[in-house]
Computed example of a mutant assay.
Amino acid sequence: MNPRNSGQAASRLNDTRPLKEKLIIFFTKWEVLLCVIFLFQGVLFSSLTPYFLDSFNLMNANFTFMEKAVVALPMILVIMSGDIDISVASIIALSSFALGAASEAGASVPQLILTGILVGVLAGAFNGFFVSYVGMPAIAVTLATQSLFRGIPQAFLGDQAYTSYPESFGYFGQGFVGDTIIPFELVLFLFLALIMWFVLHQSSYGRKVYALGNSKSAARFSGVNVQRIRFINFVLNGLFCGIAAVMLTSRIGSTRPNIAFGWDMEVITLVVLGGVSISGGKGNIFGVIVSIFLLGYLKFGMGLLNISGKIMIITTGLLLVVAVLLPMLLEQFRARRKLNY
């Protein structure tokens, strides 16, 4: 049977399903559940504090998590391919260190941006080379480079910090679009998310990433250059870490060795919470975008209620556990009821 006709036949079969079955299938989709939780969260916080739904406050809240959101986008490709990168926070620290050193040397704003991005790309390529071409496990490589990349700024800066940045450099992390209350960081993130959506869902590269996550051996026998795809994924991860370093350094106006410390697990949480399978081969951009704003506004709301940072960390950990377990339970539920998308 022609694949297109087969797909149309399946579509017609779906149309004949009872309404109850369609609703069960729809509301057991992870992305739909995330949207429901997001709406419930908004209602809850708006009832507890009048400041939550204030448009200016909501826009300003984006400044606190947009850099992590940017790094989460390429992490989707890495995890979906069956790899992991726990060195992203250290790449940000290394790129920010390079920004500070370049600024001290009198670099212009465009040169600063290029420096931060280039260092991020080189660090990502370093990881990608050992994972893809040497054949080392991604967890081992990035665990080593996590210490290496963080150790370089620690060795040179110690307890000191770079604080001399051009005034105009602050726009990339603190500025608003025109005379609006929309942060530049938010617009940049949405633009990058659109690009990554096209790469993952509309290009042959995205199809190859899905193939790798399902089975590297099968992908290799299908003609996919597995090494190249994995290498490019890590380079993209480094590129976006460099962009995030520019945004973060611009926002806080300084570089310290502990910059972005602890972000590795938070970024992975955003991706896994968004429905990307930790074992690879499953997920989409939309779910991750929802999880980014869900977790970002959750912390914002908890902050308005003066809930301690320790409780926020515990909450993040619980969400990661739920994000891993609940999709598995939903799959088992659909399998028992013999439901398919």
Rank of each mutant, 00 (worst) to 15 (best):
T269K: 07
I285T: 12
G283A: 10
S277V: 12
Y297F: 12
R256W: 00
G280Y: 13
G296N: 07
I268D: 11
G262P: 12
G283H: 10
P257D: 00
N284T: 11
S291E: 02
L304E: 12
G283I: 06
I292Q: 00
Y297S: 01
G262S: 10
M265G: 09
V276L: 10
D264K: 09
F261C: 01
S308F: 06
L294C: 05
R256A: 10
V271M: 10
G280R: 13
I252N: 05
G274H: 07
V276S: 11
A260P: 05
M265W: 13
L294N: 03
I259E: 03
L305D: 10
F300W: 06
W263D: 11
P257T: 11
S277W: 14
S308R: 05
K282E: 15
M312W: 05
I252D: 04
A260V: 11
G303S: 13
G274A: 08
R256Y: 01
I252C: 03
I252P: 07
F293C: 04
G274I: 07
T255W: 01
N258G: 01
N306Y: 14
F293S: 02
L298C: 06
S277N: 15
I259D: 01
A260D: 02
G274T: 10
V290R: 03
V276Y: 12
V271A: 11
N284M: 08
G283L: 11
G275C: 13
V288E: 04
G309R: 08
T255D: 00
K310H: 15
G262C: 10
I289W: 02
V267Q: 06
T269N: 06
W263L: 14
K299T: 08
S277E: 14
I313R: 00
L298N: 03
L294S: 01
I259S: 02
N284K: 14
L294V: 03
I259H: 05
N306C: 05
L298I: 04
I313G: 00
M312I: 14
L273Q: 05
W263S: 13
S277H: 14
I252Q: 13
I268S: 13
V290Q: 04
V272N: 11
I278A: 15
G275V: 12
F293T: 06
P257K: 07
K299G: 06
V288A: 06
V271C: 09
Y297M: 01
